[in-house]
């Protein structure tokens, strides 16, 4: 919910999975989704269970969504824009607990 009643900010309209939502201008995409009671942003790579925002500061990478066709955007670092089209990303193919390399 938007609490800044004395200073009614401009509202931005965007969509999540085709459903229209509204958010205060200047909010991050992640905050806008949570304010619209959208809690699950995508699925986990191995179990396929839902995942959502966690740190809201760009470090946990769990709020990644597709924004206007570009995958792997961190919703907590992107500011809402009028007409933005947000989608969940397709599930990742499980890795079966194997490393794909590092040193």
């Amino acid at each position: 919910m938007e609490l800044d009643a004395t200073n009614t900010p401009k509202t931005v309209r965007l969509s999540f999975e085709g459903t229209a939502i509204e958010a205060p201008a200047g909010a991050t995409v992640a905050a806008a989704l949570l304010a619209a009671d959208i809690i699950a942003f995508g699925t986990r790579p191995v179990s396929g269970l839902p995942r959502g925002a966690f740190c809201m500061m760009g470090t946990c990478f769990e709020c990644m969504v597709e924004i206007d066709g570009i995958a792997n955007r961190q919703a907590c670092l992107e500011t809402v824009q009028e007409g933005q089209n947000i989608r969940r990303m397709p599930p990742r193919i499980p890795t079966k607990g194997q490393g794909d390399g590092d040193d």
Binding site: D4, L34, A53, C55, C76
Partner: peptide
């Protein structure tokens, strides 16, 4: 702790500070 809806306290504070939004 990996379930959606579990956020850090800091995350809620950032939401409040940047957009006045509180979590559900």
């Amino acid at each position: 702790w990996t379930m959606p809806g579990v956020l850090t306290a800091g995350a809620a504070q950032i939401m409040l500070k940047t957009s006045g939004i509180t979590p559900p």
